[in-house]
Design a binder for these strands. Sequence first.
DNA 1: GTCTATATAGGGATAGAC
DNA 2: GTCTATCCCTATATAGAC
Lengths: 215, 215
Amino acid sequence: MTRATAAKDGPAGPRGGPGGRKAEPAQDQPPEAGSTRERILDVALDLFIEKGFDGTSLREIAEKLGFTKAALYYHYASKDDILMALHMRLHDVGRDGLKQLTDGPVSLATWESLVDTVLGQMLAQRKLYLMHERNQAALEKLHRKDHDAEHEDLQQRFRQMLADPAISLHDRVRMASSFGAVFSVLFMAGDAFEGTSTQELGELLRQTVHDILAP
Amino acid sequence: MTRATAAKDGPAGPRGGPGGRKAEPAQDQPPEAGSTRERILDVALDLFIEKGFDGTSLREIAEKLGFTKAALYYHYASKDDILMALHMRLHDVGRDGLKQLTDGPVSLATWESLVDTVLGQMLAQRKLYLMHERNQAALEKLHRKDHDAEHEDLQQRFRQMLADPAISLHDRVRMASSFGAVFSVLFMAGDAFEGTSTQELGELLRQTVHDILAP
DNA sequence: GTCTATATAGGGATAGAC
DNA sequence: GTCTATCCCTATATAGAC
């Protein structure tokens, strides 16, 4: 395909630090929108969805960007690093949603509002969620290595709540089902709902979620 | 990609068919339960779920079985062949369910009975479905190569119906959601419902599905 | 920041002995 | 049916030039 020549190749200097070279500073800086670093992620995101993480080679990513494999290593220390960066994108998105998660008991009402929040995020960041869904094995492998960083994954928290013995089995099935409703429409239906506006789809799904959780 | 040289259909192993050089049992026979061929699939199934198809090496499979990588090639011509054999297991299971799929119009009632059928199959063949869910990229790649064999996949048929313009958007969302309910409880909830009997889970899910599709 | 060239590892697959 | 040994290829990753 044609390369996305965005005209503005970023300002000089690897601010924040190009992946783990010998002794580079950490890269916790805010990501600049059109930077090469970000463009790499955009391309990788598409390929990881289409061919899977393992099925995608660095050469493919580089070629789509118009340069060679080796150049990627200036921006990311490893292939895993690219996956991790994409994971962090989702992590940032999900942080807001997790804030409303108190440590207290979960009611069907709080669950509904949680699912509503996540639904909004999924509609806005569809590809990011899709990539995660289709590369769970690779992501788990990644997590095993970096067992630092608080693993308050959305997925993990969800599963915890679904296993909460304080909630009746009936309700837990409904909770899981309501999430599955959203998930299947957005990520498993192929292009069956492609022509539908996100707004309309969102409304229909919110209503569905509500009905599933209704007593 | 696999190598381009040499013959593609390596005549290895006890599969019948053209070119099988040894006098071995044909492949279209009923699979013998405890046979090495079946044990290979059992081990591969677990590993493909845990580490993904690409993340699993033939060496790993062989080691779990107590012999070496090369021995696998007596039973299967390639790694893809193993995946395909697992896919066929599911194909066989799904055939019954697809029988009730007429070419006529789909009502919510027929959809419900279809989901009920699939639910039963999923409860009985949980790992097989889970493997498919977690290796969609690899399976799609496989399908591209073998563009023979009628691909009336369950997934494909489902998506077709969900895109049917003769059905209202509202109903199609409900249809997808009902499937997602089943899916999420069985495959996305981790071990949250591990302690629950399949019967009880089945009943709760059938009721949920019914409620989602109810007018 | 990107290139060429290269090191290195691991995987799938084959040949032929037993 | 399984083994050892080997081939070939592709992939990640590194070194150093420009």
